[in-house]
Each structure stands twice: as structure tokens, then as C-alpha cells.
Design a binder for these strands. Structure first.
Lengths: 302, 302
DNA sequence: CTTATTGTTGTGTATATTGCGACAATCATT
DNA sequence: AATGATTGTCGCAATATACACAACAATAAG
């Protein structure tokens, strides 16, 4: 018998004051409970019980062992029960914040699947591209696409990498020509994410694993929304640096084509942020798990 | 695999970040560690790890489970180690107090056997028939023969029953006659344990399981030492109420004979008393265990 | 004294656990 | 890009284990 099972039967023997009583309690034969505590005693090299064929009493060592066994067993049971319940007790409201385009293109399917699996969960999904304070606004989970970040007030859990690439419409490239290298970007119309005050350069790896450099760009359009940039690129208005998930559809049919494929943008990461609680709510835990799984599966398929 | 073993392998998988690494660590094949965590997941109905064939990372639930597993495993290991060590770490000084005659007749053999088994223990055995304060005098173990007692400042552990009986020398009985019943004891010379101020009666059961009554006695000798009473009885000076272990030798050869065997004295109990500590010293624990075993064995043989 | 129950041990059988091999998927290196 | 090594997973056969049943000695109850 395994160690934990032996400890269990041992405590039962002590509780019921006999091997037979414990055997009845367990629905097993007396042999196994006898062998269990014998094996325990042999393994420990200590006599745990004084048996007088009719009365069974723990020795002093056995009593000390009994106490600690009880603690361990209840700890194990508590743990197993708590984990099991964390599945069934997935219910209640779940407030989620996520970026706009990611929300519509990827998260929507995840949320729908999750709702199907867990009917007792009410979801409140707020999509916004502005930076928010998850604690202030009372979100259980905040999803962010960014470079690796760390925070003390929030727990950051990286989920999946978000690859990006440079792309443009064939019409634009025909009109303006394919840039020979990244330095040539400064002579092109670039479509940049963010606000006009922000970066005037793109940081690109020169080939796979190459050195990371900043290349000056000329921006014709700024937007804090990826779909706007995508639309502009589709309209032949310039070169955009966009996450792959945003343009998978238009890449496959050639409406947009990769630009400078040897220059890899810094990889972003989708992270889940949540308040630093000692014990995460089961609902949050399970949702993040499901999300991570779903996204990994999708990433593997594409 | 058993639950605890599965938890062990699971934590190893998380620690080493892979099934193969954990398998190497355990010296087992990859199949078993795979099956272990799969069985765990199935038993819990929860996915604990996200596997991407090349990278293994715990899910949020898995992480919570991992924490609690670690606690449990270290608790189990600590417990087992502590119990195992309680055998080998039996050493140091052990101050024991015991009644005089019990000490010489029974305890001496126990102590000798214990010393042979545990060479690292130094024993200080103080025999005295006066009542002492075990805490005050710094005894680790105090042995008492008395009626069932309870105490708040001390832990009382009953070890073995101490049967007693009435006896006298054949010469005395020939001279004074065998008492017809317990009431006749008042016309005999009785040899009483204790001090002159103490009891002037013996409490006897009238037959097996009979009612308990006090019978007045006439005391010719008081002593706080059983051997004195025994010597007096042997010299034909009266009837004594003595513990069986004190007179086993002289009963078997007829030098003393039972008197009024239908009247059973109240049964005394040998108890071990020790200071109420939260964690009993291993030495104390093992000594009391050994003592209990030894005495039970002797009692069974006689 | 009898009877029923206890702890213990031996034995056969059924279940489960293990290791090996194969497979597909992935990362590292060329 | 392609190869090689390594990963997680799964099927299969050999083995090991755990279990119940039965028999025995010892004890408590009627």
C-alpha cells in the first residue's frame, strides 16, 4: 500500500481502537490494514502500536506520529477538495479588460467557448485601447499586449507571444517601390501605432537573432487603433507594423504582403494582469487557464 | 501510482520544467511521470500543466496546486524523518524516579535491556517511596503505582495493571487460623502499607466483579516499603496486602500462600508521569514504549 | 467452559504499474 | 532549409503488487 494510504489506515486504527474496526470502516479485509501498519512500522523502524490481540493502543511514538498524520491527511484532503471545487465553483461575475482589436479578433471566440463550458459565469468584457488601472476600475483580469513588463502591484502572467511584421498593400509598393532595407523606411509613408508625440522609429532585429536597432521612420498616420492602421495599409497609404493576428486574413489572400521580412520587429507578449491576491479566485484562475490553452492551440494551428 | 507519489512527480515536473527531466531525476521512464500527472489531472478534473511538446508550464490552477503539494510533501518528509530519527537519536541523560521495590524487582531488568539497546543513553534511576514532585526535582519520567489518577500539570500514561492479593505465611495461618471472610480480618494481625495515620481498612471486591466494600483491619505493622511487609509476612507476623510482582517468588514455592482469594483488592495501575511538553523528547518516548512493551511481555508470561 | 472475535500469516488470483518501443511535434544546429 | 536530437504521448507485454480468503493462536464475553 502507498505511504499516504498506510498513514490513513493507521489513523483509522488508532481512532477505532482496532484493526478489525478500521478494516470494516475501510471496507477492506483485516489483512491489508495489518500489513499497512506493519509496513509502516518496518519502514520507520519503530513500533507504533502495542497489540495485545484484543486491544490496540498507540505507543508514545505512535501517538506523536498519529497527530502529524492527521494534520497531513486533512491537508491533503483539503487540497484535493479545493482543487476539485475550483472547477465546479467557477461562477459569478468576471470583469475583463482587453485591447480593442485583439478583443474582437481573438478574445471573442475564447469568451464564447468559455461561456459554453461554464454556464454559471457572467462575463463583462470591456474593450479599450487606452491604458487603464485594473485595480482602480475593478477588473478581475486585464489583458495587455506589450513588451515584457513587470509590476509590483499586479501579478503579470505572460500567456502567448504576439508576433508582428511589416506589411503594405501591393498597390502601395508598386507605386513607391519595395524598400531596399530598413534604413529606407524613412523615405516611405509609415503607419504608426500610438500618438503623434510618441516614437518616430521602429526597433527591428536585423535578421533572425540579429542585433536590435532603431530605424527612423516617417509617419503619415498615427492611431491608437490597429484596425485603423490596417485599413490605411489596405488602402495603399503606407507601411504598417502590425500584429500577425490582425492581418492573418489579408495576408493569406495577398491583399497585404510582408515588407522587409528579414527585419523582425521586437516580439510582443500577451499578458494577463490581475490584482495580487494571496488566493486567486477559482473563476479567474480557470479563465486564464482556458484562455492560455485556447490561444496556444490557435497559435499552433496558424 | 499512489496519490502522494503523483504529487511528488508533479512538483518535480514543475521544478525541472519538463517530463523527461523529472523522469531522469526519479530514475524512471517518461511514461510513468506522464501517466502520473495525467492520472492526477483526471482525478482532479483539472488541467495542471500546459504542454507544448517542448515546454511545460503550470497552469494557474496547477501553480496553486504546486504550492500546496510542496507544503504537504515537506510535511510528510519531515514527519517520517523525525520519526525515524526518534529511534537513532535516543541519547542523552534520562532521569527516572520509581518506587523502591518495583524498581529493584522489575524496573532493573527493563533498564538494563534498554541500556543494551541504546548505548548512548545515560540513565539516572532514583528509587524512593516518598511522594515527589517530578517537575520540581527534574525527573523526565516518574513511575507510580496507584489507583487511576489524573493531573493537569503532568501527563499520566497508564502502562500495566498491578494486581495485588492478600497473603500470609503458612505458619501464621496455622497459628491463628485462616480467616473465614473479610470481616474476620479485624481479628488478625495485618501488615499495612503506608503510615500509621493512614487507612485502617482494606477495600476489597467480594468475588470477581463483586461489590466493593471497606473492611476494617487491625494493623500490627505499618511501613512505606513493601519489602518490609513481605519480610514480616514471611516471618509469620500477619497478613499482608501486596502487589503480585513482589511475592511471585515466595508464592510459587509456598513460603507465602494466598489468603481470602475470593476477596480481590482494588487493582492498582503502574503509570508513567512526565511534564506536559508539547513535543516529548524522543528518548523519553522510546523509553516509555520499551518499558510498556517489556512489562506487558512479562505480565503475559507470568 | 464455550463461543465469537481479534491480530497474524500463508496462498492464489486479479489488477495495476512499469519499461520498452514507436510516433508526431518541436527546438537547435548546420 | 534541412537534418538530428529530444520532447510528450500512447500501445503493448512482463512483471509486481494488492487484495481477499482461509487457517491459526490468543483473548474477552456469555
Amino acid at each position: 500500500m502507498d505511504k499516504l494510504g498506510a498513514m490513513r489506515t493507521f489513523t483509522l486504527v488508532v481512532d477505532h481502537g482496532g484493526f478489525a474496526a478500521a478494516a470494516r470502516e475501510l471496507g477492506l479485509s483485516r489483512s491489508v490494514v495489518n500489513r499497512a501498519v506493519m509496513g509502516l512500522e518496518q519502514s520507520l523502524g519503530v513500533q507504533l502500536l502495542t497489540r495485545s490481540t484484543r486491544k490496540v493502543a498507540p505507543t508514545e511514538t505512535g501517538l506523536a506520529f498519529y497527530d502529524r498524520c492527521s494534520q497531513i491527511i486533512s491537508a491533503v484532503d483539503d487540497t484535493l477538495r479545493s482543487v476539485r471545487e475550483s472547477v465546479t465553483s467557477v461562477s459569478g461575475r468576471l470583469r475583463i479588460n482587453a485591447p480593442m482589436s485583439f478583443g474582437t479578433l481573438r478574445l471573442a471566440a475564447c469568451v464564447a467557448a468559455f461561456m459554453a463550458d461554464y454556464p454559471d459565469v457572467h462575463i463583462e468584457l470591456v474593450l479599450s485601447d487606452r491604458a487603464i488601472d485594473p485595480i482602480e476600475e475593478g477588473f478581475d483580469i486585464t489583458l495587455r499586449i506589450s513588451e515584457p513588463l513587470s509590476s509590483t502591484s499586479l501579478v503579470v502572467r505572460p500567456l502567448v507571444p504576439i508576433p508582428r511584421l511589416l506589411c503594405a498593400a501591393p498597390a502601395y509598393l508598386k507605386r513607391r517601390g519595395m524598400p531596399a532595407n530598413a534604413a529606407a523606411l524613412v523615405d516611405h509613408d509609415c503607419l504608426q501605432y500610438g500618438y503623434s508625440g510618441s516614437q518616430h522609429y521602429w526597433r527591428l532585429h536585423n535578421g533572425q537573432g540579429g542585433t536590435l536597432r532603431s530605424f527612423k521612420i516617417a509617419c503619415r498616420l498615427w492611431s491608437n487603433n490597429g484596425e485603423v492602421l490596417k485599413a490605411a495599409a489596405l488602402a495603399g497609404q503606407g507601411i504598417a507594423l502590425l500584429p500577425k493576428f490582425l492581418i492573418d486574413d489579408v495576408l493569406s489572400d495577398g491583399t497585404l504582403v510582408p515588407v522587409l521580412p528579414d527585419y523582425l520587429p521586437t516580439q510582443l507578449t500577451l499578458s494577463a494582469l490581475y490584482p495580487r491576491h494571496r488566493h486567486l479566485s477559482a473563476t479567474t484562475r480557470v479563465f486564464v487557464d482556458a484562455l492560455s490553452d485556447h490561444l496556444s492551440m490557435v497559435a499552433a494551428k496558424v
